[in-house]
Design a protein around this nucleic acid. Sequence first.
DNA 1: AGTTTCATTTTGAGAACTCAAAATATAGGG
DNA 2: CCCTATATTTTGAGTTCTCAAAATGAAACT
Lengths: 223, 223
Amino acid sequence: MLPSSTVENYLKALYQAQVALEDEKALVPMGQLANAVGVAPGTATTMVKALAESGLVEYEPYLGVRLSTAGAKLAAMVLRRHRLIEQFLVEIMGMSWTEVHEDAEQLEHVVSDRLIERMDAMLGHPSVDPHGDPIPTADGDIAPHRYHSLLTCPLHTEVTVTRVADQDASFLRFLEAQRLKPGQSLEVEARDSAADSVQLLTEGQRSITIGTKAASKVLIEVA
Amino acid sequence: MLPSSTVENYLKALYQAQVALEDEKALVPMGQLANAVGVAPGTATTMVKALAESGLVEYEPYLGVRLSTAGAKLAAMVLRRHRLIEQFLVEIMGMSWTEVHEDAEQLEHVVSDRLIERMDAMLGHPSVDPHGDPIPTADGDIAPHRYHSLLTCPLHTEVTVTRVADQDASFLRFLEAQRLKPGQSLEVEARDSAADSVQLLTEGQRSITIGTKAASKVLIEVA
DNA sequence: AGTTTCATTTTGAGAACTCAAAATATAGGG
DNA sequence: CCCTATATTTTGAGTTCTCAAAATGAAACT
């Protein structure tokens, strides 16, 4: 029995929550899942019990949920579809990387395998999407990657933006305007924990200051 | 309140049934609608009553249903999306016209206006899809066209296939193999109503015989 | 330990869609 | 005009997903 869009969304949210927790077997608390999926807490509890029944998650009452192996595989497929679609919308259809998320969110539940593999081929089997997020392979493997963010990387060193850990369109437009999208280079000049800020020197030699929360969402690689 | 996929499917089926009846205000019988949508008769009755409640159809108990102006507009939009998607899958993604129907059937309910208009532009605002079916414009207008089929056109006259009134993949593959897809030329050599057959001379000077039911689904234009 | 606070689960209910089978209406043949 | 065949509608029920609000568990503070 193939999973409904709803089930796919729960699994995807769970997958992403577990990645954020950086722990294979961490339990995601119910409230967090409900929040990520956008439903009331009680709804999440009900759904998770059903998912546990189908063997897609492991559920520990009052503690949280975690994906089973089967659930993780399914979630990886949803993510694969989502990210290939985003890459397709940007590369082939010429849309902006700031606005493709919502479309991909819908399409990910209905594109056939045939179509997804066609996209993958047309794109030359890309390994990351326009936000720098890794694209799982057809058998569910993800090339794992340890990232620094603008909050943790060394100062006065040239770094390249590789990934943005936020899908909010206005935030992405902000990054684009400030020359902070994946591929662009910059240096961190200073951090001020009291002011909660990070000062950057971007490609155009322009100096800008952003908050630490924003800085933590911009992942980079040392050049 | 935007229509669900289910509602869109009912409206689309109704639209196509009315076109087939060649009558603006013909009533589509319940059984036929149920059959087209693929649900039990009672289900169609229930749904149609709800649609009438929302003003999308006019329902006459025991006689049938007909789209309202609002319903027809909505149905035209679904058809527009479906056909643009089919054209996109064939022209841009290089898929076969025999296999795009199922994918389009799913995608038509989730592609955003933004995306559809992008496809339309990439395709150069096409007026027909790969099966020759006309694509409604963004304001819901369809260029109407009176077609002959291989069953009604003059004999011994060169004609061009313009449209195929069936989405079945195996039928489409058959047409392709016999050089009967939209754009190709041929002549009708003879019709035999007793044998229920039509004899054709295709582009490669090959003579083939097909049944009248198949012939009626191949629409043509006199060259 | 007692009590407040917070997250989680349970409960009862509803929306949207579906079916099978019983009841009823319409149309056609005798 | 009655009767039968066929289409349509009604009924009762089930699935999947959702919420609000009450009940309960766990944790944290005094």
